[in-house]
Design a protein around this nucleic acid. Sequence first.
DNA 1: GTATGTCAACGATAAAACTCCTAGGAGGCA
DNA 2: TGCCTCCTAGGAGTTTTATCGTTGACATAC
Lengths: 137, 137
Amino acid sequence: MPPRSSSRKPPVPPIPTAAEVDILAVLWRLGPATVREVHEALGKDSGYTTTLKQMQLMLDKGLLARTERFRSHVYESRVPKDQMQQRIAGDLLRRVFEGSAKELVMGALGAQPASAEELADIRHMIDAFDKKKRGSK
Amino acid sequence: MPPRSSSRKPPVPPIPTAAEVDILAVLWRLGPATVREVHEALGKDSGYTTTLKQMQLMLDKGLLARTERFRSHVYESRVPKDQMQQRIAGDLLRRVFEGSAKELVMGALGAQPASAEELADIRHMIDAFDKKKRGSK
DNA sequence: GTATGTCAACGATAAAACTCCTAGGAGGCA
DNA sequence: TGCCTCCTAGGAGTTTTATCGTTGACATAC
């Protein structure tokens, strides 16, 4: 019979909840890390086992992957950062901004003004997208 | 003594949950509307009273405002669309994209490619932000 | 009048997310 | 060996969200 088990890993994991996103963000920043490391990095005042349990559930949901290392477990994001960020941004885009990327950018820049360098970067990125669009169509 | 009551309205309402965002989006689109109208617009297959209850709770949280109209109630977003979008985008920016607007834009455009016109719009917006920045600093 | 329909309010339940307590295994060390 | 520390796993409790059944108010149709 097929393996067994309580830990199923959906091919495409769900959009993470707020708390889960925080954990993912830490893992993206640190790279593969133990529960302890993540817990410290979070800096929240909830208990260690809370973080542990959350990460175990995220494992079940297919959000995290886990490898054994010596005495403890090492977790990492199961879907690459870019891809997950894209999904989250896309989800928000559709639901909150009626699919208008312009409004999303407006909201983001309004909330937290970017530096001149970053603005330039963004401009370049837009150009690249534009070029690709014209090229392919 | 101060009024009383179960419906307190925090000066600054919380970031809405996913389901709440959907309701807000409908109200932004329709303008002030009744529960019935919102419920239809949502197109979900959950019951009418579910939507009703959700909107009542959102009222308590200060997310919605309500006025009496003849026999029914008319709800609307208590914070203006732009402002709430800004808060949501800002929250996302900080938590998911480490404050990098560039990455957010990248994610959004990657998830749902924008039209050439929209790209141009965004570019103009960036220019405006850039100008404002240089001007004030 | 009674029947029918719509709506808000209340309350109950269900489901999901978050929290923490406890037990038990394994290593380090006096 | 016995004690201490760190780790995981398994419940279980709490809180928050989501869902819906029922009721009573009020209006209109019959």
